[in-house]
């Protein structure tokens, strides 16, 4: 086993534990915290995969901004509305579980039957695959500038939309 394998197996534990607990925690706040664990683990895995800048952005954007937003919104709600007894729901949905496991089985079978890399000897050397931030920036701003601008526009629309959505008055008609 090389170092990459060791990192992969160590990091996959928090990632998977986090992801499983997101789905099965009764309290949504714990779900959010486990999702943060999972995301930080993924960030470390990206670093291992040579995507250094992406790994830092993953931690800053997902763990540092998006999930903080989730936790804040959960705190704005009434505790009773948020903490629901959902264990029964999770148990009584055998059909959905069956569907999901069939999907997982089929896809896993596909991956391991038809290996995307012909054999272990064709794996690319590690050193070539560390992508520098400069390279990434050049790709982003020269080759994909249109997508980048469209994303900027999308963010503007979203910002305006979120403000107008959150200004809707509460209360029901009846």
């Amino acid at each position: 086993m090389d170092l990459a394998s060791v990192f992969f197996w160590i990091l996959s534990i928090p990632i998977l534990v986090g992801a499983i607990c997101v789905v099965f925690s009764k309290n949504p706040l714990f779900s959010a915290l486990f999702l943060v664990l999972s995301m930080v683990g993924l960030g470390a895995l990206y670093f291992q995969l040579g995507a250094h800048f992406i790994s830092a952005v993953q931690i800053a954007v997902y763990a540092g901004a998006v999930m903080v937003l989730f936790v804040m919104v959960l705190m704005l709600f009434d505790r009773k509305a948020v903490e629901s007894e959902e264990a029964a729901v999770i148990k009584n949905s055998q059909f959905k579980w069956l569907l999901v496991s069939v999907f997982l089985g089929l896809m896993l079978g596909l991956i391991f039957s038809q290996s995307f890399i012909a054999g272990p000897d064709t794996i690319l050397p590690e050193a070539t695959s560390v992508v520098s931030t400069k390279e990434l920036g050049n790709l982003l701003y020269f080759k994909n500038i249109l997508s980048f601008e469209i994303l900027g526009l999308l963010l503007l629309v979203i910002a305006v939309g979120v403000v107008s959505l959150s200004r809707i008055e509460g209360g029901s008609d009846d």
């Binding site: 943060v36 250094h52 931690i59 800053a60 763990a63 540092g64 901004a65 903080v68 936790v71 705190m75």
Partner: peptide, 25 residues
């Protein structure tokens, strides 16, 4: 030593909010 040092520090520092939120909750 990291090639992305500045971004890394900002990213890790942005995790500081959790302790306050957890303490409050």
């Amino acid at each position: 030593e990291l090639g992305i040092g500045v971004v890394f520090v900002l990213a890790v520092a942005s995790l500081g909010g959790y302790s306050l939120l957890l303490a409050g909750w």
